[in-house]
Design a protein around this nucleic acid. Structure first.
Ligand SMILES: [Mn+2]
Ligand SMILES: [Mn+2]
Ligand SMILES: [Zn+2]
Ligand SMILES: [Zn+2]
Lengths: 155, 155
DNA sequence: CCTGTAAATGAAAATGATTTTCATTACCAA
DNA sequence: TTGGTAATGAAAATCATTTTCATTTACAGG
C-alpha cells in the first residue's frame, strides 16, 4: 500500500534505477504531477525556474529523457514543433486517453469516450506483441489525424 | 474504375484540390511509390535530386506537407530527430501496419501480425469519433514504446 | 559526521531539421 | 499564345534539442 515509505512514490523507482534524488528532479516531478495538459520542456523549464532559478533547461531535457525511457512519462509529437510530455501509469497521471489531431489547425482533442474498449483491446495486443518480439512495452500512443469540424468544412 | 483517365491515380486528386502537376511533384510521388521503408525528407531529396538536380529540398518539404494534409501520406515521428513519411490509403502504399519502437536504441519494428483485428477495431472507433466530433479522419498512428529484446535484458 | 567519487548540473556553444524570404520560373485556364 | 498565380529553389533564418566542459553535489562507505 502507498504511503509506506518516506518520500513520494517515485523515489523508490529512482532508487531502483540507481538515480539520485536531486532538487531539480523533485521540482520537475512535482510539476508533472500538477499539470493536466500535455506540457513541453520549455513550459516545464519556466515553471521550474520560477520555483528554483538554479534549474536549467538542459536538466529539464535530460530528466524528461530519463523519465521517458523508464516509462514514467510519455513523450508526444503533435506536429507543432516541440515535444510534449505527460505522466503515465502512475499516481497523478491523467486518465488514459488518446488523441484526435487536426492536420490543418493543429488542434488536439483528447478523448476518453471509448477507452474501456480500446484499453481492453490494446492490452491483448500488447501481450501478443510482447511475447512474439520479446519486447517490453511501457506505453503506447494512438493518434487519429484528419480535419476538425472547423477545418473540414471548406477546402 | 482505375485506369480510366490519362495519368497516374494521384493526378485527379491534385486536380480536385486545384494543385498543379509539376515535375518535382511527379518525381516525389514516384519515389514515395517505390519506397517500402518509411522515408525522410532528406532521403527523398537525395533520390529526387539524382533524377532531377533542379529539385530542391524546400520543395520536398512543401510537397510532403501538402500530401500529409490531404491524407495521401502519413507523417511519422519515431523520436530520432527527423520525420518520416509513408504513402497511405492509396495504390502503392505498403500494407497497413503499426510500430514497436525501442526507446533505447530507436529500433523500429513494423508489425502486421494482428492487423486484421486491429483494423476492424479501429474502423469502428474512427466511425464513433468521426460522428461525435465531426472530425474527418484520414489516418492514424499506433506506436508501442518500450525496450527491445536487446535493450531490455540489462538495465 | 567526514570523504571520495561518479553522477548530475548549467551556461554557452553547437547542431541540424524545418521554415521563411524573396526574386524568378512555369502551369494552365481562358 | 498569354496573363495571372501557384510553385520553386537558394540562401538565410528559426528554434527545439543536444553537446561540451568545467563545476557542483548526492550519497555509499568508513
Ligand atoms: Mn493527451
Ligand atoms: Mn512503418
Ligand atoms: Zn482544425
Ligand atoms: Zn533497443
Amino acid at each position: 500500500m502507498p504511503g509506506h515509505g518516506r518520500g513520494p512514490w517515485w523515489h523508490e523507482r529512482f532508487q531502483e534505477k540507481g538515480w539520485r534524488i536531486t532538487p531539480a528532479r523533485e521540482v520537475i516531478m512535482d510539476i508533472l504531477h500538477n499539470t493536466k495538459e500535455h506540457i513541453s520542456a520549455a513550459d516545464i523549464y519556466v515553471k521550474a525556474h520560477a520555483v528554483n532559478p538554479a534549474i536549467g533547461l538542459t536538466t529539464v531535457y535530460r530528466t524528461l529523457d530519463m523519465l521517458e525511457k523508464t516509462g514514467i512519462v510519455q513523450k508526444f509529437d503533435f506536429g507543432d514543433g516541440m515535444a510534449r510530455y505527460e505522466l503515465i501509469n502512475n499516481p497523478g497521471a491523467k486518465d488514459h486517453h488518446h488523441h484526435l489531431i487536426c492536420l490543418n489547425c493543429k488542434k488536439i482533442i483528447d478523448y476518453t469516450e471509448f477507452m474501456e474498449d480500446e484499453v481492453d483491446f490494446l492490452e491483448k495486443t500488447e501481450k501478443k506483441l510482447s511475447d512474439k518480439y520479446r519486447f517490453k512495452i511501457t506505453g503506447h500512443v494512438i493518434n487519429f489525424y484528419g480535419l476538425c469540424k472547423e477545418c473540414g468544412s471548406g477546402r
